[in-house]
């Protein structure tokens, strides 16, 4: 009994719980910044940089404009961080799942979309002009990427006939990785993820040259740190989710039969996550920021119909 509780606690807090996620978030941020720097002919920050940034922000004064709603401004970063942390619980890492049930995919998708709404609210309640404009932009952006993203992630579920991430992963180990069956869906999910994470070319809500810091313009200190952490952990969860849904989780094909299965699982999963992360980094180096109307155009005229197509094809195949 006691050992059960201990086991759950360890899973929640250490592996793959909060500590693990935090480590991953900081590591991912560093790899990301370093890759971008290298591609821009720079050196980039040292490995401990994300940690230093986090600690510094956590210990800084946290001030807000007098007109801002203090309790809500304090709560928002906390709940959005909680949302992504909860989502992380249901995403298998290297074959291990903390919690899993039929339908956890839907919960994860829902939890992952929450930060966008909180982000919008953050802009709204912190009053500054740039915050409000950035906030409304983030809402517009949300509507553009979210639908294709959801459609793209539903396709593997429909293909497998299950809404449990672990099952979808398991299915891929026996058949083939979803990315080979649904390359279009994978692409859409990737684009959707970039939109979710507000990375170039979809960093519209926080475009420095237009709206300064976007919804976070007025945030400082601890609150800002929590926002940054939310995005970092969201990156980790998003990358993990895509690896699970499209790249077969920790499955390494024929190599899976090698000895030290646990190690190989972790290695396989890690490698795939790294590839995904590098894809994100490289993408953000290659493009200029889109305009919000261009993004809406792209979302509704290109991505959404493509998502529909992917769904239709998947359902047809399922019906046959």
């Amino acid at each position: 009994m006691l050992s059960d509780i201990l086991y759950v606690l360890i899973r929640l807090l250490v592996l793959p719980g909060f500590t693990f996620l935090l480590a991953c978030a900081l590591l991912f941020q560093w790899i990301d910044r370093r890759t971008i720097a290298r591609l821009q002919a720079r050196v980039g920050p040292p490995w401990y940089q994300p940690l230093a940034d986090l600690v510094k922000l956590l210990t800084k004064e946290s001030i807000l404009p007098a007109e801002a709603d203090l309790p809500i401004c304090t709560a928002l970063p906390l709940v959005s961080l909680a949302a992504v942390l909860t989502a992380a619980v249901y995403v298998p890492v290297g074959g291990h799942t903390t919690y899993s049930f039929e339908g956890d995919l839907i919960v994860v998708l829902f939890l992952l979309s929450l930060p966008a709404l909180f982000y919008f609210l953050a802009g709204w309640v912190s009053v500054g002009v740039y915050s409000v404009v950035g906030g409304s932009r983030s809402l517009l952006q949300y509507f553009s990427y979210e639908v294709p993203f959801l459609m793209a992630l539903s396709a593997p579920a429909i293909l497998t006939g299950s809404w449990s991430i672990s099952r979808i992963v398991g299915q891929q180990a026996t058949a083939t990785w979803t990315v080979f069956v649904q390359p279009l869906g994978f692409l859409l999910a990737l684009v959707g993820l970039i939109g979710k994470l507000k990375r170039v070319p979809f960093d519209i809500p926080k475009a420095k040259s237009e709206v300064v810091g976007g919804p976070l313009t007025e945030f400082s200190g601890r609150k800002l740190a929590l926002w940054h952490l939310t995005v970092d952990i969201q990156t980790v969860v998003g990358v993990f989710l895509l690896v699970n849904m499209f790249l077969g989780g920790s499955d390494l094909g024929p190599l899976s039969s090698l000895p030290l299965a646990g190690l190989m699982d972790a290695l396989g999963f890690g490698l795939k996550a790294l590839v995904m992360l590098l894809t994100l980094s490289v993408t953000s180096v290659l493009y200029a920021r889109l305009r919000i109307d261009q993004l809406a155009d792209l979302g509704w005229r290109v991505l959404a119909p493509l998502g529909m197509l992917q769904l239709a094809v998947t359902m047809l195949i399922g019906a046959v």
């Binding site: 971008i36 821009q40 720079r42 170039v200 420095k208 040259s209 180096v285 493009y287 200029a288 920021r289």
Partner: peptide
């Protein structure tokens, strides 16, 4: 380039 969010071109042209 920086103003349209294209940091890479900014870096290269300033280099």
């Amino acid at each position: 380039a920086e103003n349209v969010g294209f940091t890479t071109i900014f870096m290269y042209s300033w280099r």
